[in-house]
Amino acid sequence: MNYNSSKKTEELDSIYLEYKYEIDNDLSYKRKDFFDQELRKFMSDSFKITLGGPIQTILTGSLGFIFLIGRREKIRKYQIKLIDWLAVFLSLFWLREVFNLVHSISFKVLFQDASYFGGDEKYISEYLKLNSGTIPVILGLIGLGISVYVIFKILPRDVQLPFIISGFIGGITGFFLWFQILGPILIP
C-alpha cells in the first residue's frame, strides 16, 4: 500500500532546507510549531498506510483460520468441501508473514543486504520504537504456526504432500510473475 504524499513531502523538505541547522540542533525557528505538527501528522499517516497491508493479510488469514477451526470436525467426518478449500486459501494468507521473514533473512545472508528484516513489518517495529525484528519475527512465527496447523491438522493426509509441493512451486512462480512481469505492467 502507498499513497501520494509528494506535496506534503515537498513542503516539509523546503522548511527543512531553510532551517536545517535549527532542526538538526533542536533550536527554535520561525515555523517550528508548524513543522513539528505537520511532520508528526505525516509520520502518523505514513504509519497508518504501512499498517494496512499486514492488517489486511492478518484479518483475511485469521477469518479463514477461524472458519476452519469451526469446521474441522465436519471436515474429518465428511471430507473437505469447496468452502473448506476457500477457507484454507484464506487462512494461508498468513504465509505472507513467513515469506517476508524468510525472504529478508535470506537476502541478508546471501547478498549481504542491509538488514535481516524488511517490509512493512520492520517499519512498524521501528515506528513503535521496537527492535526492527520484533514484529517480523512475532508475525512470522504466528504465520508459521497457523500454516503448519492448517496443512498438517486440517488437510487430509493424502493431499498434504501434493498441496505443499504445488504451493511451493505456485508461490515461487506467482512471486516472479507478479514482481517481474505483471506487476510492473499493471502497476507501473
Rank of each mutant, 00 (worst) to 15 (best):
Y3A: 05
Y3S: 09
N4F: 15
S5Q: 13
S5M: 14
Y16T: 06
Y16C: 02
Y16G: 03
Y19I: 01
Y19W: 14
K20H: 07
D24R: 03
D26A: 15
S28F: 10
Y29W: 08
K30N: 12
R31S: 15
D33I: 08
D33F: 10
F35M: 02
Q37A: 15
E38G: 07
E38D: 07
R40N: 12
K41Y: 13
K41L: 14
F42D: 11
F42W: 14
S46Y: 10
F47T: 04
F47D: 00
F47R: 00
F47G: 00
I49G: 04
L51G: 06
G52V: 03
G53F: 10
P54M: 04
P54W: 09
I55Q: 05
I55R: 05
Q56K: 09
I58D: 01
S62Q: 02
L63H: 03
F65Q: 03
F67G: 04
L68E: 03
G70P: 06
R72N: 12
R72I: 14
E73L: 13
E73G: 04
E73R: 10
K77C: 05
Y78C: 03
Q79G: 12
K81L: 14
L82C: 04
D84M: 08
A87D: 01
S91M: 06
L92M: 14
W94V: 03
E97Q: 15
F99R: 00
F99K: 02
N100P: 00
N100R: 06
V102Q: 04
V102F: 15
S106K: 10
K108M: 08
Q112T: 04
D113P: 02
Y116K: 04
Y116S: 07
G118T: 13
G119H: 06
Y123F: 15
E126Y: 02
K129D: 12
N131R: 11
T134W: 01
I135T: 05
I135G: 01
P136T: 00
I138L: 15
I142K: 01
G143T: 04
G143W: 13
L144H: 10
G145Y: 08
G145F: 13
I146R: 04
S147G: 06
Y149I: 06
I151H: 01
K153D: 04
K153C: 11
I154L: 05
P156K: 11
R157V: 11
D158T: 02
L161N: 08
F163M: 04
I165E: 02
I165M: 05
I165R: 00
S166D: 00
F168R: 00
F168Y: 11
G170W: 06
G171C: 09
G171T: 08
G171S: 09
I172A: 14
I172E: 13
G174T: 09
W178V: 13
Q180V: 14
I181W: 14
I181D: 08
L182Q: 06
P184Y: 11
I185P: 10
I185S: 07
L186Y: 04
L186T: 01
P188S: 13
